[in-house]
Design a binder for these strands. Sequence first.
DNA 1: TATGAATGAGTGTTCATTCAT
DNA 2: AATGAATGAACACTCATTCAT
Lengths: 193, 193, 193, 193
Amino acid sequence: MRTKDETKETKILDATAAIILKDGAAGVSTVKVAKRVGISQSNVYLYFKNKDALLLSVYHREMARIQATGDLQAAADESLAIEVRLKAYISAIYHYAMAHPDSLTLIQQIKFLFGQYDSNPFLHGETTQNLITDLYAQAQQKGVLKNAPISVLMSMVFSVIHTHSMNVQRQIYAADQYSFEEIFAVIWQGIHA
Amino acid sequence: MRTKDETKETKILDATAAIILKDGAAGVSTVKVAKRVGISQSNVYLYFKNKDALLLSVYHREMARIQATGDLQAAADESLAIEVRLKAYISAIYHYAMAHPDSLTLIQQIKFLFGQYDSNPFLHGETTQNLITDLYAQAQQKGVLKNAPISVLMSMVFSVIHTHSMNVQRQIYAADQYSFEEIFAVIWQGIHA
Amino acid sequence: MRTKDETKETKILDATAAIILKDGAAGVSTVKVAKRVGISQSNVYLYFKNKDALLLSVYHREMARIQATGDLQAAADESLAIEVRLKAYISAIYHYAMAHPDSLTLIQQIKFLFGQYDSNPFLHGETTQNLITDLYAQAQQKGVLKNAPISVLMSMVFSVIHTHSMNVQRQIYAADQYSFEEIFAVIWQGIHA
Amino acid sequence: MRTKDETKETKILDATAAIILKDGAAGVSTVKVAKRVGISQSNVYLYFKNKDALLLSVYHREMARIQATGDLQAAADESLAIEVRLKAYISAIYHYAMAHPDSLTLIQQIKFLFGQYDSNPFLHGETTQNLITDLYAQAQQKGVLKNAPISVLMSMVFSVIHTHSMNVQRQIYAADQYSFEEIFAVIWQGIHA
DNA sequence: TATGAATGAGTGTTCATTCAT
DNA sequence: AATGAATGAACACTCATTCAT
């Protein structure tokens, strides 16, 4: 494998992510990225077909990172009760977001730049995404979730967790001012049938 | 009479809004706006100091439109019980969003372009906004709302309503597939103590 | 006569002069001028054919002001000895410059903007100018001035006086740190045969 | 012909200088420069950070050229008498100006564009400039120069030489109509104590 | 006399992308 | 794999000037 290349590719993705967090997704330019990495502008095109591919790569990397969360595996464990799996999923996203609040911001920013065609930021992870959607669908079928559009429930979960994690990151209030249970209550009672 | 001027100003705002909905807020350019209105590019600067002022104007116009909703007045009626007012507020936003789904999209897009510093898209309406925040705050004090950050509750409300209204607009499902009560249940049980 | 108009015209000229001193002659624009006067941009064209005419007007006004100096009349008095007249002229310019250092700056800035075709900033006053040039020419013929190009001598006089007056205005040194005689000595011994 | 050897940067500087001489420093635009060189406008920004940097580069190049004059070295030779050094300096500038009259014009134009804050166009060469100012200062201390502001004396020298060289270039009179000694006399008797 | 509206040409600057080396 | 050079298109914004009112 191309160790060197992957390092460089990672650096480019990191730089891009940093710029998104600083200037917004619309503020990303290959010039800025290259300058930040310390490479020539054209070098970026060796690793990414074009700017869109670069942004999409950042997006997919964040999605993959969320999925890689160990906690998330429990949600996929079909031997568990659906309610348990759902709670595990929400808990996993919550704790991931608290540890990496920028992650959700990146996802949201890129989604918004590419048009608001799909309002649910958790979508699009292909394989994993279907699992999650399936989880919601099954839970709804079994009467665990309210009879509301799944995309509405999903974006609600995302919205609550993201807003809370950003508040903490921006020190609008201390992390321990609100317990997980308190935040979770909002989500659960909102989606629970 | 400045009728003529106001028409032009309105046309420019309309064109800008249309572009935002089509290409996102980052996709707005004075050239596009001017072309759409059928005027010269420099003419835009006769009505708006600069591009930011133009976008902000679109933003404030949408905010004002929401506030102008008759239903919203009930939410401000201090003679009513706090719970009634809160429900009136949510209902008002809901019905406004269903009638004008683009409105929330515009607000969200512009907010995101100007930096994600304030994650609550309903904020910043000055007078009205304080009323709404006050409403939430009072409701929380009186134990009507859960003990969760107000900004989290507010953005949750926005998120649910916006996602649902977009789904309907994009014909992901029919408007009558989910009743107001069903959507409202998600919101209310989410925020209600 | 049109009293009101002349007031306005004066205001426009004043505003233009102020802008030149602040941003340089190249920094003048009808927008800036109009804004400063508090009139509409197109109004400027009621008083001046175009921007060049405006700048030229400022130029000529300053030239006229210098000529209007009472002291300068002595220089024109043909009954006096040529050396006396020449000294009177230099003294007049010197004292005018000390009282109105911006005047020479305006003249210089406008001259430079319109191309450096004529390096002598004192030229171009038509009637008066010929008098001054004649004065130099006569003085040279009578052996009072060195055998050097008159334009060189003239621009030397301007340069010394202008530099000194600017230094004082910018408080690089106090006005009384150098007497008129000291500055005059530089000029006189430079041009005197 | 250095055409082939000339780097792009040099070509751009040359084009800029030519435009300054033709239209004045305020008349320089990146479009004009690019067109003259035969490159695309954006290419200019590959070699110069912005327009100011471009103009400053032209300025510094001319300053460096003057300093590179062999004759100027004598002025820096501290083993020589101060009066000798001063005369060497004036002579060097004079002969340089006669050979390259545009050089002083460029310097003057750019100085004027950047604001008239420093009225002495010979200033700002950093290292060399201090040497020259020191030379004047020492000469004044030793009673060689009149008791007048050094900046006044310096701009006087510049003015005389520049005006004369321009006159010759514009064929207002022939180069041999006035000898170096005649021009020098104006300068020297003007500044000499 | 005065203005507001309008515009086309212009400004400096940034950008995504390509290509030869 | 990496770069420097190059470019055309786009950008926000300013300007001098005209014209109808």
